[in-house]
Computed example of a mutant assay.
Amino acid sequence: MAEEEVVVYGVRGSPFSCRVEIALKLKGVHYKHIEEDLANKSPSLLKYNPINKTIPVLLHNGKPLTESLVILEYIDETWQGYPILPQDPYERATARFWAKFIDDKCFPAIFKACWGKEKERKKAAEEVSELLKILEDELKEKKFFGGENIGLIDLAAIIIGYSLGVHQEAAGVELLNREELPRLCNWIDDYVNISFIKESLPSRDKIIAYLRNRLGSGNVSK
């Protein structure tokens, strides 16, 4: 194939799709985005991800890859240029740990605090508070989790940098404030205002409306 074919099957409002597209932009890779309707998944999505049937899917020269953190590492290893993961083996392993921490711990707690059963929300909000404090401490005095430039942890943390604020506003809860977590709030300001990241983010109003309609009153068990 004379020219590489790179396709992302995703959803504009999904932080998991967003992190993949940001990584491709960091590498300067031209790609095609195919928007999926998760209520009516395309035959292509089901073909390329028959096991989990989820987005995102990266299709590179006809070969599919799934799971966003796996895709990020593939992007870093496949295309030269901007380094997403550190070169040092220990630092690479540490970055992987924090990316998994965000996916396995932070996102489920945020979702439950905003959209879980009423009796579960307070406990989940307390858990989110503790998890965000851990990230605040990990950030230390660095501008980004990756140091002076964004890296794997920052890409994974789009869940905190963008999605957290959207879920908060849609659900009418407060899980993050500047007084308690100043470094994390400064990181968010610096992160989402990077031009190509800002351009990659979906419409805040549309996502809030979607969440309220999909997960708000009457759609989530109280």
Rank of each mutant, 00 (worst) to 15 (best):
R19E: 01
Y74A: 11
Q80D: 15
K41I: 04
G161K: 00
G116S: 10
E77R: 07
L46C: 08
L139Q: 01
K117S: 04
L176T: 11
L131S: 02
G10S: 03
L215F: 15
L155W: 01
V128N: 05
L164D: 01
E91Q: 15
V70C: 10
I197Q: 02
G218K: 08
S200N: 06
I102Y: 02
V166H: 03
I51W: 09
A124F: 08
K133R: 14
A23K: 02
S163H: 09
E73S: 13
N177E: 12
L181G: 01
K222G: 09
L24S: 03
K143H: 07
N61H: 12
C106P: 02
Y191G: 03
R214D: 03
I160V: 15
I84T: 11
F97I: 11
S217Y: 11
E5T: 15
A113R: 00
I150P: 01
W98E: 04
P108F: 07
L155Y: 09
S14Y: 02
Y90P: 13
K47G: 11
Y90K: 08
K222R: 15
I160Q: 03
K47N: 12
R12T: 00
Y31R: 04
E180A: 14
I150W: 00
G10V: 01
A23D: 01
E91A: 14
F144V: 06
I110N: 05
L85N: 08
S17T: 00
V8M: 04
K112L: 08
N186Y: 11
H30I: 06
W187P: 06
A99P: 09
G147M: 06
K112H: 04
D37H: 02
F144Y: 13
A156Y: 07
S129V: 12
D88V: 09
R178H: 15
E67L: 07
G161R: 03
T78S: 14
K47T: 13
L201K: 04
I150Y: 00
L58I: 10
L38V: 11
L65V: 05
T78P: 08
G10A: 12
A209M: 02
G161I: 08
L181K: 07
A209R: 10
V57S: 00
T66Q: 10
C106S: 07
D190F: 12
G151L: 03
Q80S: 15
P182C: 11
P86A: 10
I34S: 04
R121M: 08
F144N: 09
P182R: 11
V11G: 05
H33K: 14
A99T: 02
I160G: 01
D76Y: 02
N149M: 05
K198G: 00
K123Q: 15
V11L: 12
A171H: 10
F16P: 00
E126R: 12
I51M: 14
L155N: 08
